[in-house]
């Protein structure tokens, strides 16, 4: 892999230098980080200050600019092969964060402002937070735990895992599973091509939920008192349910719709060729 190779070369070629600087900022500002290769960790504290720690070879510069409440951190040395830089940045809790990287794992903890991460290679991991999360990577898993704002996550290769998330969810993958555990959202749209989609959480009144895959299975665990109009679509797959559902006259390639409770929420479960399962939290299979 290019990034590992370059990292290796960088470590062999140049001695590492440490940068550690702290400066005051106004709260509610923004941190922008851009780097090509390396690693970024962002965490928060209660101070109105930003601390940037960076480990980098001395041939690569680290450029830190701040004006009022916007802080911009770049790794330089764009001519020639990129050398890896590791950033550990601490920001005020209220800060928003933007991170752009090429090959860089990213981890962000407890940032309450909006968070946007875009990388090509590298997992994205987010803990806590209250803002809007927009996480995009091509080759890397996305994990979000304990977030209290909306989540939009997109990856191509590898999966998406959301746990203890409260807020609207949009999750997209191509070659990876999407797993949502303990999710409380008014709207969920989760779609993959090669992989399963699983969801355990609340189905809210008038909420809208869509779970879709081509090859994999779709499994929902919902409370027993759920009120939803459920549409199940499959071409070659199967459907099984804990709830008292009679699916009548299901035609190949068509949809079957049934109502649970008052039917206020809309739930769509789609799998072209896989198993679709609707499970009741707390178990209990219905005798059909």
């Amino acid at each position: 892999m290019v990034s590992a190779f370059v990292l290796g070369v960088a470590l062999l070629a140049a001695p590492q230098q440490q940068t550690d600087t702290t400066f005051a900022v106004s709260p509610g500002g923004r941190l922008d980080v851009e780097l090509m290769v390396g690693q970024v960790s962002v965490e928060s504290w209660e101070r109105n200050a930003v601390r940037v720690r960076a480990t980098h070879p001395s041939t690569t510069g680290v450029d830190i600019r701040h004006s009022g409440d916007v802080v911009r951190v770049d790794a330089e040395g764009r001519r020639g092969p990129p050398a890896a830089v590791t950033f550990v940045i601490t920001v005020p809790r209220t800060f928003g964060v933007n991170i752009e990287g090429l090959s860089a794992p990213v981890e962000v903890r407890n940032v309450d402002g909006n968070l946007a991460v875009e990388t090509t290679n590298g997992p994205i991991t987010v803990f806590g937070g209250r803002g809007r999360l927009e996480l995009e990577t091509t080759n890397g898993a996305i994990t979000v735990r304990g977030a209290r704002g909306s989540v939009r996550a997109g990856t191509v290769n590898q999966g998406i895992t959301l746990e203890d998330v409260e807020g609207d969810v949009q999750a997209q993958a191509v070659n990876g599973h999407i797993s949502m555990q303990n999710v409380r959202a008014r709207s969920v749209d989760a779609e993959t091509v090669n992989g399963s989609v699983s969801f355990r959480g609340a189905i809210q009144e008038n909420g809208r939920y869509r779970f879709s895959t081509h090859n994999g299975g779709v499994t929902l665990h919902v409370p027993a008192d759920v009120s939803a109009t459920v549409t199940v679509s499959t071409e070659n797959g199967t459907f099984d349910s804990d709830f008292p559902v009679q699916v009548q006259g299901r035609r190949r390639g068509d949809r079957a719709t049934f109502t649970l409770g008052t039917g206020s929420a809309r739930v769509e479960m789609e799998s072209f060729g896989g198993r679709i399962e609707l499970r009741r939290i707390g178990g209990g299979e219905h005798q059909q």
Binding site: T19, T21, F23, G61, I64, R65, S67, G68, G77
Partner: peptide
């Protein structure tokens, strides 16, 4: 517009 009041640079440049 990127010119800022405070500008730190670290590294060989």
């Amino acid at each position: 517009q990127q010119a800022v009041r405070h500008h730190e640079r670290f590294g060989a440049e």
